[in-house]
């Protein structure tokens, strides 16, 4: 399977700055790509377009030749966000939020260090690092083919960061899931990815 963006352009409002113009990227499911750019260059926006959260003004995003917006139900391209507390419903117990991804094997929960005790709690009762583990688990549903990671470990301490990536890299390799990762830390990108793409047009 291939995820590709062809000549995509994007800006938030007519008259506001052009965030992306005629951008191209191609991802195979067996590669891990790092995306590098200064802040404000539209990395998050690009990931959102690739995952179908935003529509590009022009150009196309295709998964296996089919537009990403045509995939109904579980989307094979899943995005993990920088701030987990914004993507978890504060009024739902974490087990319920997690269940939205379908049945997850025990391996994933154990690998991410999610304790049974956390499942019955609400997001406000756990730390950002603990919540991010749930968001990562939720993005690893059975049908995930590409994972888009938007600075997912920036807010975590170094040890948690190493723990999470240690598990994720093994999981991705085993299931042949492709990765597109954004980080400001070059050293981290070098540890994680097989190649890097620079977003420097504008």
């Amino acid at each position: 399977m291939i995820l590709e963006a062809n000549d995509i352009s994007f800006r938030y409002h007519i008259g506001s700055a052009q965030i992306l113009s005629q951008f191209n990227i191609r991802l195979q499911r067996d590669e891990r790509v790092g995306l590098v750019a200064p802040s404000g260059y539209g990395k998050t926006t690009l990931l959102k377009i690739l995952a179908g959260y935003e529509n590009a003004d022009s150009g196309s995003v295709l998964l296996d030749g089919r537009p990403i917006q045509d995939y109904k139900g579980y989307c094979p391209v899943q995005m993990i966000f920088q701030h987990p507390e914004t993507v978890l419903n504060p009024r739902l117990k974490l087990a319920v939020s997690l269940k939205e991804a379908g049945l997850l094997p025990r391996r994933i929960l154990d690998g991410l260090g999610i304790e049974d005790d956390w499942l019955t709690r609400y997001p406000a009762e756990l730390s950002g690092g603990e919540l991010q583990r749930f968001c990562i688990a939720r993005a690893l549903g059975e049908q995930t083919v590409f994972l888009l990671a938007d600075e997912i470990s920036t807010m975590l301490d170094l040890i948690t960061q190493a723990q999470i990536w240690d598990f994720l890299l093994k999981e991705l390799e085993m299931r042949h899931i492709g990765l597109l990762a954004v980080s400001h830390t070059m050293e981290l990108i070098q540890r994680l990815t097989t190649r890097t793409v620079t977003l420097d047009q504008r």
Binding site: D157, I159, Q161, Q163, E187
Partner: peptide, 21 residues
């Protein structure tokens, strides 16, 4: 020391466990 070891530019090694609630 564990923090230092976990830095990507050092060993990127993950020690078990987490900060207690």
């Amino acid at each position: 020391r564990a923090l230092w070891q976990a830095m990507p530019q050092n060993r990127f090694s993950a020690e078990d466990g987490r900060q207690p609630a």
